[in-house]
Design a protein around this nucleic acid. Structure first.
Length: 117
DNA sequence: ATAGTGACCGCGT
DNA sequence: AACGCGGCCACTA
């Protein structure tokens, strides 16, 4: 259970504040192409107190993977909204808050003329 | 060693 | 848009 998780945590740590990534994307960045589930496992085994922004990782559908209403769900959503991420119908607009990748680090919100109100 | 279970994903109804 | 299904793979019983 040692090796492997740390690599994933490292990438999760790079997700900028106010943005979100997906299990699949993190897996891809870490060189684990089809292993999104492994990323979920890595976060599940994340030691308490570790300075890793685990809450910035959600699933590809733009929703939180915990059961709605569960303590974990509430916690993760609170942390994300605290960073300015908005939920619409329980979903996050990945076009707007999705993290492009390690190279790009633009700030959301002010962004594009995606004439969203 | 086999079978079941997940903080998943993407494609086809 | 919501659901179902198969693919993935580490971990546990």
């Amino acid at each position: 259970m040692q090796i492997g998780y740390e690599v994933i945590w490292e990438f999760v740590r790079r997700i900028p504040r106010g943005r979100v990534s997906t299990y699949g994307q993190i897996a891809k960045l870490a060189g684990l192409f089809r292993r999104a589930r492994f990323v979920g496992y890595a976060l599940h085994h994340l030691p308490p107190g570790m300075p890793i922004p685990w809450h910035r990782v959600i699933n590809a559908r733009g929703t939180i993977s915990f059961p709605a209403g569960s303590a974990n769900y509430t916690e993760q959503r609170k942390l994300l909204e605290r960073e300015g991420i908005r939920f619409i119908g329980g979903k996050v607009d990945m076009k707007r808050w999705g993290w492009p990748g390690p190279t790009s680090q633009k700030s959301p919100g002010r962004a594009r003329a995606t004439r969203r109100a």
